[in-house]
């Protein structure tokens, strides 16, 4: 088990290999589809001018994401009426939807760890080598368990995106995950995909018994 504390230093990132279980502690943010699209269009590509509180949120994110971690998660949150937020269920969502954005976001903000489920593609794998960073696979559906590792909700940005899509700033302790894409170019997802493809071809070549 590798214990990682956010912000994560480069040496710690380079020391991780595909298959390693990790336990994360520190402050991270959640971000999924709307957040990634917003970050890339407004600040990475500057395809549209910042509006409303965009700038303020961006400044806050810059600090949080430098050396930090972004978690693909749309949580169930209690205390919405009192603003005393508490994470009730907080498993990962499918990461591949962020593939068009993730590499750019990692470079722009110096993100060290992307956490989600299902793995990501070549662009993110390249960014993992360059930044350097890792992709950490959390266990899909283990939402109540993961919510217990969330000690506190420190802030929320862009709640107007909706509860699942908002960027929640959370302090976690012993958040469990597995390295499935490392900074040395290895991807467990690519391996499993290739092996299962061979198995599929073998099965498809045989007819029904």
């Amino acid at each position: 088990m590798h214990n990682l504390t956010i912000p994560i230093p480069d040496e710690a990132i380079r020391g991780l290999k595909v298959g390693d279980p990790v336990s994360l502690s520190g402050v991270m943010i959640t971000g999924r589809d709307t957040a990634h699209k917003w970050m890339v269009e407004t600040f990475v590509k500057e395809a549209r001018p910042p509006e409303g509180d965009d700038r303020e949120v961006y400044e806050a994110l810059k600090d949080l994401l430098a050396g930090g971690a972004i978690y693909h998660c749309g949580p169930v949150v209690a205390g919405l009426d009192t603003k005393e937020y508490r994470f009730v269920a907080a498993g990962p969502t499918t990461s591949t939807r962020e593939e068009p954005y993730q590499g750019d976001v990692m470079h722009h903000f110096n993100v060290k760890a992307v956490i989600g489920k299902g793995g990501m593609g070549p662009k993110t794998l390249a960014a993992c080598q360059e930044v350097p960073g890792v992709y950490l696979h959390a266990i899909g559906g283990a939402a109540s368990l993961i919510a217990q590792s969330v000690q506190r909700v420190l802030a929320v940005h862009k709640l107007a995106f909706g509860v699942p899509e908002a960027m929640w700033v959370i302090e976690v302790k012993d958040f469990p995950a597995v390295v499935t894409m490392d900074a040395h170019g290895a991807s467990l997802h690519a391996e499993v995909e290739a092996r299962s493809k061979t198995n599929l071809e073998r099965l498809l070549a045989a007819e029904v018994r």
Binding site: G74, G91, A142, A143, A147
Partner: peptide
């Protein structure tokens, strides 16, 4: 705890 098994209900 009567909390969702998975957050995506």
């Amino acid at each position: 705890n009567s909390t969702p098994v998975c957050q995506d209900t």
